[in-house]
Design a protein around this nucleic acid. Sequence first.
DNA 1: GACCAGGCACATC
DNA 2: GATGTGCATGGT
Length: 230
Amino acid sequence: MGRRTTRTNVRVIYQHLYKALGPQKWWPADSPFEVIIGAILTQNTSWKNVEKALGVLKRNKVLTPRKLYDIEEKRLAEAIRSSGFFNIKAKRIKHFIRFLFENYQGSLERMFLEDGGCLREKLLEVNGVGPETVDSILLYAGGKPFFVVDAYTKRILLRHDLISDNASYHDIQALFMDNLEKDVSMFNEYHALLVYVGKYFCKKIPCCEGCPLKRFKKKRGEGQQKRLLN
DNA sequence: GACCAGGCACATC
DNA sequence: GATGTGCATGGT
């Protein structure tokens, strides 16, 4: 019918964003281990505050599995103070590190040998590692094709009427994973691009001035049909 | 001084 | 299963 489907919309949005903004070079980190610690530290926190905390860990030369295993939780909390929620995040980092040592002798290489789906289930059991954190770890530290969904992603999709307000994390992730090739570098860029748009363009007003998606018009998508039914 | 930021767990209904 | 709340710093 030549009718533009959700699948097409999901793909076209990526093309618009990539063309307008180019590669984002995520995740900003020197190692997969730094990605993981950053993923925990950035929970509901601006990246600037996370960078400061990571800087303290680096300067103290404790940004390694072994050092973070040995460090006293209280000291760790103090080091990451700038990232906010520092007591709970120190606990969460400790939980992950213990998981890493108990199951993989403290080796990320061994951990990532595991099948992606199995590893995802196991990581979700770690207290403090939820769906977004686990997918960030798998994609950006492990190079496994899992799409990362965050608050920006949901906001942008809502604005463009591609999901309903009550869509779950899994619903939104499926929207991408069912409609795109499982391409790690594309998933990498796509999520980073959505974060960029969410940060700088998708604020209070639908499609702020300058947003690369301002001219994006989905055609006869599911959202419009839903509106007609209401 | 309010509001927000690359969430998550836990309590309660 | 949905909804509310605590966790806390630092920038706008």
